[in-house]
């Protein structure tokens, strides 16, 4: 009797599961659908032509260089801030977090516009930079500045979450075993938070490499990959912009992917 009633129930459950898998597959394919033109419309001759015309492949190196510097700046400046926030060492921590969230939620175009008023040629910062023969408008430095501002909240908030997930008793244990706070940070907090930091760094990298809104306002030159896509699309055509789009994908994805895989592996091993 029991078996007689459970068979149709089990069959119904299998059918339901199959339907759920198919529905998930459909949603997943719809999400990946924009990648299709990279396979169907990107031709070798277009890629070869890209190397000979316009800015050539220099936007790849510009994007790699600027994003690399931006992330270095973020790691050096943002890691300490994230740790201070996560360990409750700052007064009124909600105010600090609100500031970071504000920057994260702010539209990139607005960031770019406001940066003009902060580091533009007629501002105090702009004049200071001019004194040392630098400019933060339409230069490589401007590109780095724009990328730093677009990516910073993603790194700092991600790093804060990574540090906050650590058991605070471990730092106490390290202290009682003779470590000063800086040494504890280096030997315990940093390695244990590394998977989370890597994930935060990956998000910041993707954001920095793909920065466009702020960049188009204060760093129109030199072209990074997003601007190369845009200007080629505007001035040449849709298909000619595809090689830059593919290059942007190739530059943006591997670092986060590697970070994600390493982070997942490191978490599994602990």
């Amino acid at each position: 009797m029991l078996i007689g009633t459970s068979v149709p129930f089990a069959a119904g459950r299998r059918a339901g599961h199959t339907f759920a898998v198919l529905a998930s597959l459909l949603v997943w394919l719809v999400m990946l659908a924009p990648l299709l033109p990279l396979v169907t419309r990107l031709h070798a001759r277009t890629i070869a032509a890209t190397g000979r015309t316009g800015p050539g492949w220099s936007p790849v190196w510009v994007s790699l260089g600027s994003a690399g510097i931006a992330l270095t700046v973020l790691v050096l400046g943002g890691t300490g801030l994230a740790w201070m926030l996560a360990t409750g060492r700052l007064p009124a921590p909600r105010v600090w977090e609100a500031g970071l969230l504000l920057m994260q939620l702010m539209p990139p175009l607005v960031i770019g516009l406001l940066l003009v008023f902060l580091v533009g040629p007629y501002t105090a910062v702009g004049r200071l930079l001019a004194d040392v023969h630098l400019s933060a408008t339409n230069t490589f430095l401007a590109l780095v500045v724009a990328e730093v501002y677009e990516a910073a909240p993603y790194y700092v908030l991600g790093a804060q979450a990574a540090f906050a997930a650590l058991d605070p008793r471990l730092a106490v244990t390290a202290g009682l075993l003779g470590d000063r706070p800086v040494r504890t940070f280096r030997r315990v907090s940093l390695p244990l938070a590394a998977p989370g930091l890597a994930a935060a760094l990956a998000a910041a990298w993707a954001r920095a490499v793909g920065a466009f809104g702020a960049v188009i306002i204060i760093a129109y030159h030199p072209y990074g990959l997003p601007l190369a896509v845009w200007t080629t699309l505007e001035e040449v055509g849709l298909e000619q912009a595809l090689p830059y789009a593919a290059a942007l994908l190739l530059v943006a994805v591997p670092v986060p992917l590697a970070a994600y895989l390493w982070s997942a592996r490191a978490r599994r091993r602990r």
């Binding site: 058991d167 008793r169 471990l170 106490v172 244990t173 390290a174 202290g175 009682l176 075993l177 003779g178 470590d179 000063r180 315990v188 390695p191 244990l192 590394a194 602990r270």
Partner: peptide, 17 residues
């Protein structure tokens, strides 16, 4: 670090890395 006191709690608190 200067107290010269060791603490062994219910959770061993080993460093996972």
């Amino acid at each position: 670090p200067d107290r010269r006191i060791g603490l062994l709690a219910q959770a061993p608190g080993l460093f996972a890395h």
